[in-house]
Amino acid sequence: MTGRTTEPLIDPATLPDRLRDGHVVVGNFDGVHRGHAAVIAQAAEPAHAAGRPVVALTFEPHPRTFFQPDRPLFRLTDAREKARMLARAGADATVVLTFDERLSQIEAEDFVADVLARRLGAHTVVVGWDFHFGRGRLGSPAFLAEAGPRHGMFVEVVPPHGGATPVSSSAIRDLLAAGDLVAANRLLGRRWTVETEVVHGDKRGRELGFPTANLVLPPETRLAYGIYAVRALVDGAVVNGVASFGSRPQFDDGAPRLEVFLLDFAGDLYGKRLRVELVAWQRAEAKFESVEALIAQMERDKAEARRLLALPEDPLAPSALT
C-alpha cells in the first residue's frame, strides 16, 4: 500500500475506495507510544502483505475531555502530531471522529455495524486489550470479537505491551511531569515532540544575549519546569538548542511557556510553526541572586546542551523530527 498520508480525514461518511476493505486499528492513541505501535504493527504486516490499507480510527477531542471537562487532560500529541506519528508507525490514513454527545451515546452494536462495517468497510479490526467503546463503555474487546464476524469482519485483540507494567499514556504523562525524560521517551519509543507557532515574547532573552523562540503550550501541559537539551526542525533542517519551560521566576513568575534558544542559528522565526523534540533534561528551573548569575548559568546550560546533544542517540528513543 502506497500513498500514506498524515492529513487526517475528519468525520467521513464513507471512506475512499482505496482505503476500504482494509485493516482498521481503533483507539485514542494519545502519544502513539510503543504499545500503540505494537497494535499498528500487528495490523500492518498482514494487511500490506495482502495489499490492503491500514486505517487508524481515533477520536477528537479525547473522550476523557468530553466526559470530564473540569479535569484538563495533558495531551501527549495534538491531532496533527498524532496523525503524523500514526503514519510513521505504519497507518496509511487516519480517520478522526468528532467525539460529541451523539457519538458518546452510540450503542456498541451500532458502532460496530455503522462505523466499522458500513462507513469504514473494514476487513479486519485490530484493538488493544483495554479498548472499550459505545455508550457506558459496554463495548469490550470480547464484545467486539463476537460482534465483528456477525458483520463480516475479522477481529484481533493485541495483548498488553510491556509485560507486567504495560506501556500507557498516563505513565508517560507522569514521567514527563516528574522530569524523567529518559524513561518517558523510552516508553514513547521516540523523543517527545511539540509543535506550535512562534509568538512574540518580552524580548528579555535577546537583552540577555540569548534570543529565544517563544512557544505557548496548552495550559494543561504538565511538563516539569526546567532546562532541556532540544532539537528543532527549522525550514526542513534539524537545529540543536537549549530550552526552558517554566514561569521565569527570575522576572515575572508568569504563565508557563517554552523558550527555545537555537545554537548556531540566526534568523527570524516569528509566525513560523516550530517542531521541537526534548532530548535530555538538564536541571530544574531556579531563581538566581542576580541577572549576572543567571547569565553565567545560561552559558553553562548552553555548554551542557552541546555536550548532551553530541552523545550517541538513545536507540530506544530515536528522533522523530524527519
Rank of each mutant, 00 (worst) to 15 (best):
160 P>M: 13
155 V>K: 01
144 L>A: 12
120 L>Q: 11
140 S>G: 04
153 M>T: 05
102 R>V: 15
166 P>W: 06
169 S>M: 01
92 D>W: 00
103 L>R: 11
141 P>A: 14
123 H>F: 02
124 T>S: 10
154 F>G: 12
158 V>I: 14
129 W>P: 06
112 V>C: 11
163 G>S: 10
159 P>I: 13
135 R>F: 00
143 F>Y: 12
166 P>K: 01
142 A>R: 07
134 G>T: 03
127 V>C: 12
104 S>N: 06
172 I>K: 03
138 L>H: 13
92 D>H: 08
163 G>M: 13
89 A>M: 14
167 V>T: 03
119 R>T: 10
133 F>C: 10
124 T>Q: 05
137 R>A: 15
173 R>C: 15
132 H>Q: 12
152 G>Q: 03
124 T>M: 07
97 L>V: 08
144 L>Q: 02
132 H>Y: 04
149 P>I: 01
159 P>Q: 14
137 R>K: 07
171 A>D: 07
104 S>C: 06
174 D>P: 09
177 A>H: 05
156 E>G: 11
146 E>F: 14
94 T>Y: 00
104 S>Q: 09
151 H>I: 04
177 A>G: 13
120 L>P: 12
142 A>Q: 04
127 V>N: 04
167 V>G: 03
111 F>Q: 06
137 R>H: 01
171 A>T: 03
167 V>W: 02
165 T>I: 08
168 S>Q: 00
173 R>N: 12
136 G>S: 06
148 G>C: 06
91 A>D: 06
93 A>D: 07
177 A>L: 09
103 L>H: 06
126 V>C: 13
118 R>E: 07
177 A>S: 11
106 I>E: 12
136 G>C: 03
174 D>F: 02
146 E>P: 11
148 G>S: 03
98 T>W: 04
139 G>C: 11
139 G>V: 12
152 G>A: 09
95 V>S: 13
144 L>Y: 06
137 R>C: 11
173 R>W: 13
135 R>Y: 00
133 F>W: 02
174 D>A: 12
117 A>G: 07
104 S>A: 15
102 R>W: 13
147 A>Q: 09
152 G>S: 08
118 R>N: 03
114 D>M: 05
125 V>L: 12
97 L>K: 04
126 V>Q: 06
104 S>I: 07
157 V>T: 14
131 F>I: 15
164 A>Q: 02
125 V>F: 06
113 A>W: 10
121 G>F: 09
160 P>W: 11
151 H>V: 04
103 L>Q: 06
